[in-house]
Amino acid sequence: MVNFALQAKEDQHPDGSAAPGSDAPVQLAVNKLEIRYGGMVALSGVSLDIRQNEIFGIIGPANSGKTSFLNAINRMDMMRSNMTVTGDIHFNGVDIRQWRNVYALRRQIGVVFPLPVGLPMTIYDNVALAPRLSGKNLSRQALDDLVERCLRRAALWDEVKDRLNSLGSLLSGGQQQRLTIARALSQEPKMLMLDEFSIAVDPVTTMRIEDVLKELRQEMTIILVTNLVQQAQRLAHRTAFFLNGECVEIGETEALFSGQVKDSRTQDYIEGKFG
């Protein structure tokens, strides 16, 4: 049995550790970001800093531009002919457009989608795919260890360890979502972006994933887009409220949820008056 550094950490009760303060190093700096699809502006005038090791929540109703925001960070505009991004985004202090190799950028940022995506290959291959494609020639043993480590961190290992060779796409929805997380972790990313991950997942699995996130943020920055206001309240250190392509407000989650808001629309949304 392989012993993992992570398991030692589990005993330290990471939940209690403090949030990164305003002096913490910046993981992602976004400045005057604007995203357009053809002529339509999906998001505009967004400027914000995301600190290392924080969970940064983004809430907002449908069509507010949350998914577009995540796509811009991962440079998915390159894959979509009608999507244009202006303004700048710095990841680890480097303009994401200056990265010589976008693939290397994307490897440092894990993404989890609203609907679970188990790729139609074995569970093992689902997790091993990205490391294999990245050209690191890991030995079989190293790859085995990596797969196990990622599945453990995603709280899926115990359920699948005896059937790593069955199809990942035939797991249950909740399991597939954790598989997606394991896959996102397979390249040791510096940042993890989750887009409404709990949309197709039962409450119990949701809580398990939330626990996973609390632990993961010890090692990486997390952007959590969520349609559940309470989820942001439970997890996020700071939260941004997006509405109709505009970033209405950014603040400490606790402050926002205790009524210290600058814009009344934020208050209304949090209280469930619209959206």
Binding site: N74, M79, R106, F113, L115, V117, L119, A130
Partner: peptide, 25 residues
């Protein structure tokens, strides 16, 4: 399409995505 998006977001090139996921299926 979600399969492709998943691969692209992992840092796979278009060809890797086609080769590993799209073509086999």
């Amino acid at each position: 399409r979600a399969f492709r998006e998943a691969c692209w977001n992992m840092g796979a090139t278009r060809w890797q995505t086609i080769r590993q996921v799209v073509l086999p299926n």
